[in-house]
Amino acid sequence: MCEVKGLSYLDQVVSKRSETPQGCLVDTSLLFALSYPLDVFNEDAEAAFRILSENSIPVFTNVNIRTEFIELHRRVAIPEGLIDLLDDQEGGLDGHLVQKLKSLRTRYRKANGEGKTFKLSDREIKSHRDMLTEFEGNGIDGWEVFCKDYLTGAIQKEWDTTEREWNLNFLSLRSTEKHPLISDEVTWEGMVELVEKFGIGAMDAMILNLFRCSRLEVLLTADSDLAYAAEKLKLNGKVVIVPDALCS
């Protein structure tokens, strides 16, 4: 079985092993928490990276994690942009629009008050898009201009800053040459097997499959599905670190 331990054990895990771990895979949940100051696990993520920094442990991410990271930031940046628009220009906006945005702001504030990250679902984003596309001027609609004003460049910057400031390494499998940190072939069949075995999402399964096929010893996650599945796998010598609050 793979060990699942709370973050307070990370220092012991990385500093008291006979060999220094070659690296750590960080999954989307914890990487997002690291990049979003209001996330409930933001401080945990920062603490984990401080420990990894002190112990010179490289941290890896991959294309699946980056894709999910971008998607989470989209779901957060859109409501925040709409709320910022309301806060700035409430008096100048269409009355019906103001009512809708006030309702969104109330939900956002409630979530923040409860320590939760407020994310819109894809369906809710479409609903807000439909609302803004009703407004048009000079051949462009309100949603298009909203995206230009509030999103353009913003999400790319979140990724670039997180990657650069925390010195993330990118684990790419596209090269024809086998990556030195990959020990077993990473296959679709291996991913699907994890989906079927544990009922986890395909993206989670891709990340877990990569972890089990790699030489990386540590997986950092705040995703209980991933931790559950990892714990059931026979991954000798590997450990999954979760925020203490998720550790039963």
Binding site: S35, E46, R50, S53, T162, L168
Partner: peptide
């Protein structure tokens, strides 16, 4: 490989 450097949180 690159390793995390301290102080990354501030810029984020």
């Amino acid at each position: 490989y690159k390793t995390p450097r301290p102080g990354g949180a501030a810029r984020i």
